[in-house]
C-alpha cells in the first residue's frame, strides 16, 4: 500500500485515507522526499482529516517528515487533525510544536501561500 502524492502547480497534496501501518508510514516519508526533490515543489499539505489514530510512531514519522522537507527547502503544513487525535497526542506528551498546522486543506493552502510569500 502506498499513499498517493498529488502535484498541484508547485505544491504537493497528500490526503491520508487509510489506516497507516508502520511500513506505509516509512514508505510515505521516502516517497514524499523524493517527490519534493524531483518536482522542486516549495510547499506540501498533508491532510489528516480521515486519520482516526496517531500513535507515537506515526507522530514521530510525521514530525520527521516536516523537518526533513524543511531541510530540503519545502514547507509542510498538516491539516484536518481530528479533535480525538489532538487529545490523544497531548496524552502521549506529543505537542508537535514546530509543525505548522491548519484546520483544513483550504486553510493549509492559504497558510502556504502566506508563508512562502507567493
Amino acid at each position: 500500500m502506498r499513499i498517493p502524492i498529488l502535484k498541484l502547480h508547485n505544491y504537493l497534496l497528500i490526503s491520508i485515507q487509510t489506516e497507516i501501518d508502520d511500513h506505509t508510514a516509512i514508505q510515505f516519508q521516502e516517497d514524499l522526499l523524493s517527490k519534493i526533490h524531483q518536482s522542486g515543489s516549495s510547499g506540501v499539505v498533508i491532510d489528516l482529516t480521515s486519520v482516526e489514530i496517531i500513535d507515537s510512531f506515526i507522530a514521530k514519522v510525521l514530525g520527521d517528515v516536516v523537518t526533513m522537507s524543511d531541510l530540503m527547502g519545502a514547507k509542510v503544513v498538516l491539516t484536518g487533525i481530528q479533535p480525538a487525535v489532538a487529545m490523544t497526542l497531548i496524552d502521549l506528551g506529543i505537542h508537535l510544536k514546530n509543525v505548522p498546522t491548519a484546520l483544513d486543506l483550504e486553510q493549509g493552502l492559504i497558510k502556504l501561500h502566506q508563508e512562502l510569500g507567493e
Binding site: E52, I53, I54, D55, A84, V85, M87, T88, D91, L92
Partner: peptide, 27 residues
C-alpha cells in the same frame, strides 16, 4: 480494541485513546 470499545459505549475520544494505547503496547 476500538471495535470492542465502541460496542461497550465509549465515545469517539475514548475510542481513540484506547486504540492508541493498544497500538503502543502492540508495537
Amino acid at each position: 480494541g476500538r471495535d470492542i470499545a465502541r460496542e461497550i459505549g465509549f465515545g469517539t475520544v475514548d475510542q481513540a485513546r484506547i486504540a492508541t494505547a493498544i497500538s503502543e503496547l502492540a508495537r
